[in-house]
Nucleic acid binder design. Sequence first.
DNA 1: GATGAATGAGATTTCATTCAT
DNA 2: GATGAATGAAATCTCATTCAT
Lengths: 206, 206, 206, 206
Amino acid sequence: MLTATDLPDLTRLDPDTRVRIDNTVLEIFSAREFHRIGLIEIARGANVSLQTIYKYYGSKEALLFSGLDFWLGQLALEMLPHLGSSGDTKVKLRGMFDSVLGFFERNPKVMPMIMNALYLNTWKQNKAYRYPDIFDPLARLLSEGRSAGLLRTDVSEGILLDYLQGILFRLVQSYVDKGTQESLTAQSDALFDMLWRAVAAPNTTS
Amino acid sequence: MLTATDLPDLTRLDPDTRVRIDNTVLEIFSAREFHRIGLIEIARGANVSLQTIYKYYGSKEALLFSGLDFWLGQLALEMLPHLGSSGDTKVKLRGMFDSVLGFFERNPKVMPMIMNALYLNTWKQNKAYRYPDIFDPLARLLSEGRSAGLLRTDVSEGILLDYLQGILFRLVQSYVDKGTQESLTAQSDALFDMLWRAVAAPNTTS
Amino acid sequence: MLTATDLPDLTRLDPDTRVRIDNTVLEIFSAREFHRIGLIEIARGANVSLQTIYKYYGSKEALLFSGLDFWLGQLALEMLPHLGSSGDTKVKLRGMFDSVLGFFERNPKVMPMIMNALYLNTWKQNKAYRYPDIFDPLARLLSEGRSAGLLRTDVSEGILLDYLQGILFRLVQSYVDKGTQESLTAQSDALFDMLWRAVAAPNTTS
Amino acid sequence: MLTATDLPDLTRLDPDTRVRIDNTVLEIFSAREFHRIGLIEIARGANVSLQTIYKYYGSKEALLFSGLDFWLGQLALEMLPHLGSSGDTKVKLRGMFDSVLGFFERNPKVMPMIMNALYLNTWKQNKAYRYPDIFDPLARLLSEGRSAGLLRTDVSEGILLDYLQGILFRLVQSYVDKGTQESLTAQSDALFDMLWRAVAAPNTTS
DNA sequence: GATGAATGAGATTTCATTCAT
DNA sequence: GATGAATGAAATCTCATTCAT
């Protein structure tokens, strides 16, 4: 039976080493399909032994999710302040929208890594991998917006989130896929307007 | 749709056998992660030998893409008539939208299979796997809609397609993920309205 | 649950390959301690893949015991005819004694390999590794000798066998250990006389 | 007996600790194959740290041999007095023979531990592990016996020792193997008689 | 068309041994 | 004295893929 103490927690890992691993994980898990990646590459890339990786992460999957955790944490850092800012739902949503696009433009490798994690996550039973740091505040924002009469209430909140997520995900995916040509942030006025029209309460004018 | 050169002529394969393979591929590639699927399972499931699979498909990837091809062909069969129907862009788009939601509601295993294919496709250089049967007519519809002043022109046509795709993809994904509870088609009025507001030319009222 | 059919029986293995493996097993399992031997060495030495070894033998232990089986089979081939020959117990025993010494002089690597197997066998619960091909006929000979009043009956038959085994084993071991200097067969008259005096019925004169 | 240079001075080790280690070594190295024993088990069993073991013993092998050293020292303590006693070669040999059987009957775990050490010793070049405390006096006894015309001279002294050793070793091994059923000491009259007949000068009557 | 065998690669685990604290 | 972390090596297993029959 596993108890928390059985899991060598990551805080015991040397911080420098951890940074090296996080970077290598991004580098490699963004470059190739999960099943064509050997942990030995990661180990060598991060200059640690295979066993160190197994000791602290336990498995290839866990290593990927841990790396994802780190990078989504970075995203959260940039994105969450906008959700807590002053201003109405639209302003907050716009701030979030822009920061997400900006983040992925500046970190184009994160999306391919997410593709690898998404792939695994599709069949995970214990959706422990839900990143509430990002999705909970987002859900709260949508909830507020609906209470304030600014967002649609003819569909469930989950559907609103799906539109948000689906659009952002596909935009970024396309962007990365095309070799990052035309900037997304540069046209974010129009892009956000499209999103806003989708989720705003139908009578909302502005 | 796969290029002819990629495959050793599937037409030579016994049609019955092929059907069995297509079904097994859907069954298994929707059930588990690509890398946790053994080709023997497929072979046994379809009652063919491993070598038959290799002879006609060439690789695990090609097998998946071929299966996907079949199922997207089924989708195209249901969806394309709506694009060619009489009526304006909105009507056509709505028809397509509904038929897509309906298709995935009736074939819930196709989306997980797509997740497996999407995963592989992320890093494919030769994007031979683009399914023009579906996307070309769609692009044409959007083009027409823009010419007719019905759809936005402040973003590229690709962006419009991305919104369409991103929303549909995420809706279906959520639907399948949640164990297919609340129907999508049942609320397609609102769902399509949201999409339409996103892509319609801003001045469009109805 | 394993059934006999689950075990890829060795007869399905290509005879040439098997010979190469048997030879390599002797070569390597006689050269070093069991735990310092890597199966990869055996694989390379026999020019087969690691998986082939695992497929046919199942484990490092099984590989060793299988090799031992082969070499003890060779020993049995030389030794058993003497046990079945005409003549009294003493003549038969002498024939066996000499053929054993001769065998190990001609195949000095077999004893170190036996040391490795003996080591493992010490703790084996299922002493499946008992080589009845050799020990059963030997026991029968001792039994006959006792019935004929030629061998001691004041100790159990097992004890007689222990003296036989213990003496032969140590003689060969010493011989191999010392770098195979002074021949054993050359002095087998005296060596056998010592053994015979030990096991013969006390009143036996000759 | 190990050469001083092989060990980092065991005398500096706390005597209590050393006793605990010696006992644990016997316990564990008699229970399982050398390569399936983890040094942590020993460390935990003796309540010392892994590093203490490494500091004082240097390696897993050295630890085993050191433990063996201790237990063979115990054997020597019981056995040597008989060799130095008054009486002729036969009496002395008999005393030694009985004390050896007795020792292993009272300490049945020592033989399996010896099996582990023997295994390692087979390939050791520097046969530092020869235990002259036991073998030198024994050789001296045999030498005396030959000078006195009591022991065979038609084979080398080494051969005599081999018979002695081979017989004792196999008797004890069998005894331990069979779960220590029928006592050896109880039948030592016959057992020794067999040995004596083997090694005694052929003309010796009694 | 198919069947059986072989291979290379990589996941995962366990451990002796070494280092730094 | 001891404790914790890191490493290299090897056992074992599973698979995609290739070959020969």
